[in-house]
Simulated assay, not measured.
Amino acid sequence: MTFLSADQRELFLPLIDGIHDNPPWGAFMRNLVARTYARRAFLVVVLANAPADQAPTVLHVTAPRAANEPPLDMMRLDSLRLHPHSRMRPERVYSLDEMLDYDRPEQLAHQRAVLEEMGIRYGRWLRISARGAADAWLVLAREREDFTGSAVSTMSMIAPHLAAALRTFCALAAQRLQTALAEDSLARIGVGQVAFDVAGHVMAADREAERLLTFSAGSSTTVGRKLQLLPETGRQLEAHCAALASSPEGACAALLLDERRDLWMLLRKSDLTLDGPHAAPAVIGTLRLERYENSAAAIRTIAAVHGLSAREAALAHAITLGESIVEAGRCLGLTTETSRNYSKRIYAKTGTSGQADLVRKLLNGLAPFS
Rank of each mutant, 00 (worst) to 15 (best):
D146F: 11
S150I: 06
M157P: 04
A134F: 05
E117R: 14
S153C: 01
A113C: 10
D135E: 06
R112P: 07
V152C: 11
A141M: 00
H161R: 15
A163Y: 01
P160N: 09
L126K: 01
A130V: 13
V114E: 13
A151Y: 01
A133Q: 12
I158E: 04
A113T: 15
A134Y: 06
G119R: 12
A130D: 10
L126S: 02
D135I: 02
G119V: 04
F147S: 08
E117Y: 11
L126G: 02
A164R: 08
R131K: 14
A133K: 09
A159V: 07
A136P: 01
R142T: 06
A165H: 03
W137T: 01
A165L: 05
M118A: 06
E143K: 09
G149W: 13
M157Y: 03
R124G: 02
T154I: 14
M155F: 08
I120V: 12
M118G: 01
A163M: 11
E116D: 15
W137V: 00
F147N: 05
R142E: 05
E145K: 05
D135N: 03
A134K: 11
L138Y: 09
E117C: 11
M118I: 03
L162K: 10
E117T: 14
P160V: 08
M157D: 10
P160M: 06
L162P: 09
E117D: 15
G149K: 15
W125T: 04
T148A: 10
A159E: 06
L140K: 00
A165N: 04
S150E: 12
Y122T: 04
R144G: 11
R142F: 07
A136D: 02
A113D: 14
V152F: 07
R131P: 00
L140M: 00
Q111S: 11
V114T: 15
R131V: 08
A165K: 04
P160Y: 07
R124N: 04
A113Y: 09
L138H: 07
R144C: 10
A141C: 00
S156C: 08
R144H: 15
M155P: 00
T148Y: 05
L162C: 12
G119E: 10
A141E: 01
P160Q: 06
A133M: 12
A164W: 02
E117A: 13
D146I: 10
D135Q: 03
L115K: 05
M155C: 10
R142P: 03
T148G: 09
L138D: 08
M155A: 07
V114L: 13
S129R: 06
L115G: 06
H110G: 13
H161Y: 15
A130S: 14
A133N: 07
D146M: 12
A141I: 00
R112N: 13
